[in-house]
Amino acid sequence: MATERFFHLSETSAGVQFGNLIDPALHSKVMRAYHFFREHPFPGFVEAVPAYASLSVYFDPLRSARIGQMDADGLLEHLNAMLDEAMKSTDVGQEDPSSIMKIPVCYHPLLASDLEWTAEHCGLGMDELIALHTGTIYTVYMLGFVPGFPYLGILPEGLEVPRKSTPSESIPAGSVALAGRQTGIYPISTPGGWQVIGRTPILLFDPGRDPSCLLKPGDKVQFESITLHEFFQISQT
């Protein structure tokens, strides 16, 4: 039985917290529960949203009220029972190790305003920095901040940098950036506080595309270093 219990987040959502850490074991619990709720929607279920160590479930209370005879705690009990079921099952949340999404990134100061600063801060040569960043297979722990922004972990210790004390007014779309033990990609141009070390020519999110979002929660990702020339070649296609 799962020891974690759901609590009310709002009139239309409930949450469950597995811990307060960026940790693969906690995240695999989150992913199990995420897939289980999506595959077994209860009356009124709208969506399940994973985060690092927690899952939120959104629903239409008018329809979910049928569960547990209009009793708010009855709904939580139902969600807890589903969670227990999710933790027992073995057939959900299993990723295929062969499917690693390769993301091309140009690590060049022309396209990455904080690349040189980061190398200096970490005491790394440019080649060492690129080797460290591309040498790790990352997990998409969650998406958030703006549509399609993947929170990738866990970043190698040698690349750990603080957030900017004052966020940049505008970080260009495609920017690959670092903060703490996380790396991420800005899908659209937006203000942001992470340190930018590269840029991808790949479109991470396009509402007109199916599926709109390139990366999904739980996906595996690896970066590949490309030249400026390759960057602009891919950008044009």
Partner: peptide
């Protein structure tokens, strides 16, 4: 805390100790 779900109506407390009330276009986490 590590990032977790937020939704319309969530009140977050920033490092400066001031609340932010999330509205319709609230980010998801």
């Amino acid at each position: 805390m590590v990032s977790a779900a937020v939704t319309r109506g969530s009140v977050q407390l920033t490092h400066e100790g001031q609340p932010v009330l999330l509205m319709a276009d609230a980010q998801t986490t």
